[in-house]
Simulated scan of single mutants.
Amino acid sequence: MSPTRRTTRRPWARRRLPGAAALALLVASGTACSNQAIDQWSRGGMPEGVTKQADIVQTLWNGSWIAALATGVVVWGLILWACIFHRKKKNSPDQLPPQVRYNLPIEILYTVVPVIMVAVFFYFTARDETEITRITKAAPVKVAVEGYQWSWRFTTEYQGQKAVVAGVPVDLSKQSPENPQGPQLVLPVNTQVQFDLHSPDVIHSFWVPAFLFKQDVFPGNVHNHFQITTLNKTGVFVGRCAELCGTDHSKMLFSVKLVPQAEFDQYIKSQAGSAQ
């Protein structure tokens, strides 16, 4: 007599548990990605800003897109209206429709309206640019930025002490968001910072995408100044030269590390030397 083979069936819940867990993980991942996508769309594709000036740039950017889309809707609507209601009919005679030439009111309209639109854009751009580049009271933290072929030197002065960081062209094969290469500029959050930009050779451009704006770095006796009113988020943010400046332009990378005030104080004290 052959032995009886017993087969055990896993309970329904145990069989479905791995699938349910995978589905839950997929839904959670999709929700996170969806939230990130919505957040990115709300900024018009711009990175998340970390300065007060970035808020100004973001508002100008969003307003420009709204105005451009509104203009596009009107133009597209007129094009579709003309295509639908003024197309050639099936049984219409093979001849040109009535031609409209030298319509002075229409010509004035499509000349004056674009001029007004450009003037409005110019006003808001000039207003915001003036605010972004405004130099107010003396900032407690001052940074001398020297861009040279093909790296950066940062001299940070704070309360009579200074920290100097200089770099060389980076190895692009080692560059990653988690491990940014090049010299690192350390700054405190919630503190006003003034930048003094200069170059000993050619024109460069100091660009930290998270600042949402960039500043040119000029050679000669020209020094470009600007202030960051408030750095409002800790973290490490990549920067680069945004002006084609020679053979190793792409290797002219750096990073900005924003830290709490106490950590910044320790960093400055750990650097030898005082401001001269």
Rank of each mutant, 00 (worst) to 15 (best):
V202I: 13
P93V: 03
D171N: 02
P169C: 08
V141C: 02
Q159T: 09
P140L: 13
V202R: 03
V74C: 12
A13G: 10
F211I: 13
L17W: 15
S34E: 12
Q175W: 11
P209M: 02
V74L: 15
P169T: 05
D216G: 10
V168T: 04
T59F: 03
I116N: 03
F218T: 02
L104I: 04
T71W: 13
I203F: 15
P260T: 11
R153N: 01
F211W: 01
L109M: 08
A272R: 07
A163C: 09
V143G: 10
P260V: 08
A242H: 01
W65S: 01
L26Q: 00
H198N: 06
F122R: 08
R87K: 11
A210Q: 10
H249S: 02
A163Y: 01
L109E: 08
A272H: 07
E48Q: 06
R5L: 02
T234E: 05
H204D: 12
R240Y: 05
Q58G: 04
R6Q: 15
A139N: 04
F121P: 10
K88F: 15
R127W: 09
H249F: 05
A275H: 09
A54E: 00
K52N: 11
A13Y: 12
S29L: 12
T247S: 05
I116H: 03
G273W: 11
V168Y: 00
V238A: 12
G63E: 14
